[in-house]
């Protein structure tokens, strides 16, 4: 029994580490879609020259999106199938889930927009870009607040 608990703990720690690493690189490369890293010398730091290459940062951002989507659906369905009787989303969990959903949804629309022969209206594209940026900043801020206040995603049912 304790062996099962230990393996579950290791599994969730692995998922958490992968999730945090993915978020970190997605945020880093996402902000890198604006021409700021070269202007503000960050890409001059040895080992970080790739931050000034928009194609590299775009590809890393896209790979991060693939991993994040897989993780989010894995965790969400695992929660629905296995854990909903033992735990439920806390208030802060709902806020973060809503913000993450908004970020993923707007990001997915941007990916669609970037496909060939896809046209969104000019105003919608501008709103989408700003919404995605604002959503990410709100999500990161919410996570910082939750980290400081030690709020968890779930609470006992």
């Amino acid at each position: 029994m304790s062996g099962e608990k230990t393996s579950a703990a290791v599994r969730w720690r692995s998922v958490k580490v992968l999730y945090l690493l993915t978020l970190f690189f997605m945020a880093l490369t996402g902000f890198g879609q604006m021409p700021i890293y070269n202007r503000y010398y960050m890409s001059d730091i040895p080992g970080l020259g790739w931050l000034a290459d928009f194609y590299i940062t775009r590809n890393i951002h896209y790979i991060g999106a693939v991993i994040l989507l897989g993780l989010v659906f894995y965790v969400a369905f695992d929660f629905i199938l296995s854990k909903r009787r033992q735990a439920q989303l806390s208030a802060s969990g709902w806020v973060r889930a809503a913000l993450l959903t908004a970020v993923i949804f707007s990001g997915a629309l941007i990916v669609v927009k970037n496909l060939p022969y896809v046209h969104f209206s000019d105003g919608f594209v501008i709103a989408l870009d700003l919404f995605h940026l604002a959503g990410v900043m709100a999500f990161l801020a919410a996570n910082c607040v939750c980290l400081i206040a030690q709020k968890k995603w779930t609470a006992a049912a």
């Binding site: 590809n59 896209y62 790979i63 999106a65 693939v66 897989g70 990916v111 496909l115």
Partner: peptide, 14 residues
């Protein structure tokens, strides 16, 4: 091209 290919992977990830 890479973006188009990764976009297809995003459909498979969920």
């Amino acid at each position: 091209a890479d973006a188009n290919n990764f976009a297809a992977a995003m459909v498979m990830a969920p």
